[in-house]
Amino acid sequence: MSMITTDFLSDIDNAVNNLDFYRLYKVMCRYYHIDMLALLDLNTWPDDKNINAACVAIDSSDGVPANLNVLTISEENMIFSDVKSSIIPKIWSKNETAQSFDFYEGSTDPCAVTFPIHSATSRHYVLVGLMQQSNIKKLPLAEAHYHSSLIFQKYHETVLVPSSLPTVTPRELQVLKWSAEGKTSQEIAVILSLSEHTVNSYTARVQQKLQVNNRAQMVAAAIRTGLIQ
């Protein structure tokens, strides 16, 4: 058990994309016997009833439940209302979980564990775990909270809000320059021997860093700031 922990902690620094963090959360599922872990963005809830899941990792033999990427949660939801104003991890009973997670079609009668997370930029997330009652009794809550915080910290600075990074990387600059030449993502992918997905990821990161919403604005902002001529 301790070897798995050491392994997944040492891999946090190497995580660079969504899948790497999915892998980390999945290892965390296996280590703590959690059926499902979901990292949810609570910033606009309950004004907006839809909560976006940044990452959902499932380690269950029940198969793949559909559509957990966006959850529609009413403002009366007991667990989410509590988490919204809380900073401490908490374990929830079967009954409380059943009332608040009626959308989950996975293992029967799970209990929930919640880890509220506040980012350095005052964004509010929660890591929700669903697990069997027999396993939740053995869960070392403080240790699991610490591990979830370590993963989140890296996830936040690497993927969720990369604009907190100070500079544009050489690869991002290449994508920026070719975008300014009017090339499409597919054309840039061929030129740089990358996938279209990677090119789109670089484009999205640059747009976040320059705080713009589309390619035209990105190119204009890059020229204004002297990134490209």
């Binding site: 994309n17 899948l19 999945k26 990677t198």
Partner: peptide
């Protein structure tokens, strides 16, 4: 030019 890495022991249907 690659997009992601995955361990052989990590590959299951959900992943």
């Amino acid at each position: 030019g690659a997009d992601f890495r995955i361990g052989k022991d990590e590959l299951d249907r959900q992943t």
